[in-house]
Design a protein around this nucleic acid. Structure first.
Length: 257
DNA sequence: ATGGTTGAAGATCAA
C-alpha cells in the first residue's frame, strides 16, 4: 500500500493538482497539510467523488491537516496534541484504517529564530514526542507522516550557509527531531535511500529554486518497528512539483507490505 | 543587505 504525505499549500487553490495526483498515483492513504481552509469550506464532495474519504482538522487562513483513504473511511482517533489546551493551531490529526495508525503532522515553521514562534516550535516538538512515545507503546504499525519543518542533517539541504539562520536548520530543531527518531522510529526515506545526496521534498517558489535543485528534505514518514517491518519502498513524487500551479512541497511516500 | 513567490485574507501575514 502506498501512503503519501503532501503539504498542498492551500487545498482550494490546489484541487486540480490534488485530483490529478490521486488519479495518477492512486495512493491508498494521503496525509495532507496546510489546507488553509475552514472545515465548513473544505471541498469534501470533490474528494469523495475522486473515491476518497477523509478525516479533517481545518483552519481558516493557515494550518489545517487531513487524512484521506481510498475506499473505506479512516476512523478518527485524535485531533490536536495533549498538554496545551490554549493551542488553537490545527496541526495534528490521528486516525486508524485497516489496522494501521496514521498521523498527519504539520509541525510549526518556527521562523524567525529568537522569537516566540521558535519557542512554540520546540514546545510543540516536545508534545509530539510525548504522543509518539505513547503510540510506540501500543506496539502496532504506526506512521507519523507530515511536514516536520526540520532539516535533519547537513546533507538534507542544498546549502548549509543559506539555511544557517533558519529555524528549520537550527541545532535545537535537529536535536528534537533526533530525540523523536531515537525513541525507535525509522526515517523511511533515509532508510531506503541511505546515500542519496539530493533527497529533497521542498523547493521554494522563489529565485528559481526548483530549476537549481535548491531544495531541502523536511517532509518525513516515521515508522514504528511494526510498520518498518513492512517497509518495501519510499520516494518523492517530484513530477508533481514541476506542474503548473504546484505546491512548493512534493508528495513523499512509503510503500508498505 | 536585499529581493525573489505564493495563498488566503482583506488594506498584511505566514511560509
Amino acid at each position: 500500500m502506498k501512503l503519501v504525505t503532501f503539504n498542498i499549500n492551500g487545498i482550494r487553490a490546489r484541487m486540480p493538482r490534488l485530483i490529478e495526483y490521486l488519479a495518477r498515483e492512486q495512493p491508498d492513504l494521503v496525509c495532507l497539510q496546510e489546507l488553509k481552509c475552514a472545515d465548513d469550506a473544505l471541498p469534501v464532495g470533490d474528494i469523495e467523488a475522486a473515491g476518497y474519504r477523509g478525516v479533517w482538522h481545518g483552519q481558516k487562513g493557515f494550518n489545517g491537516v487531513a487524512i484521506l483513504s481510498r475506499g473505506d473511511a479512516p476512523s478518527l482517533r485524535q485531533v490536536g496534541l495533549p498538554d496545551d489546551p490554549d493551542d488553537s493551531h490545527s496541526r495534528y490529526i490521528e486516525a486508524e484504517i485497516h489496522g494501521l495508525i496514521v498521523a498527519s503532522i504539520y509541525l510549526p515553521n518556527g521562523n524567525p529564530i529568537g522569537t516566540d514562534k521558535f519557542t512554540y516550535k520546540l514546545r510543540w516538538m516536545e508534545r509530539l514526542r510525548v504522543r509518539a512515545a505513547a503510540l510506540l507503546a501500543e506496539e502496532r504499525p504506526v506512521v507519523l507522516a507530515g511536514d516536520y519543518n526540520v532539516i535533519p542533517e547537513d546533507r538534507d539541504t542544498f546549502s548549509k550557509r543559506a539555511m544557517a539562520n533558519d529555524a528549520l536548520f537550527q541545532p535545537e530543531s535537529q536535536a528534537a527531531f533526533r530525540a523523536l527518531v531515537h525513541q525507535g522510529w525509522t526515517d523511511a526515506l533515509r532508510a531506503i535511500h541511505p546515500a542519496d545526496p539530493r533527497l529533497y521534498t521542498f523547493w521554494d517558489y522563489q529565485a528559481g529554486a526548483l530549476a537549481r535543485d535548491a531544495g531541502f528534505r523536511i517532509d518525513h514518514l516515521l515508522l514504528s518497528p511494526q510498520a518498518a517491518d513492512r517497509l518495501r519502498g519510499a520516494g518523492v513524487d517530484k513530477w508533481a512539483r514541476a506542474e503548473e500551479k504546484a505546491s512548493d512541497h512534493a508528495p513523499t511516500w512509503v510503500d508498505l507490505a
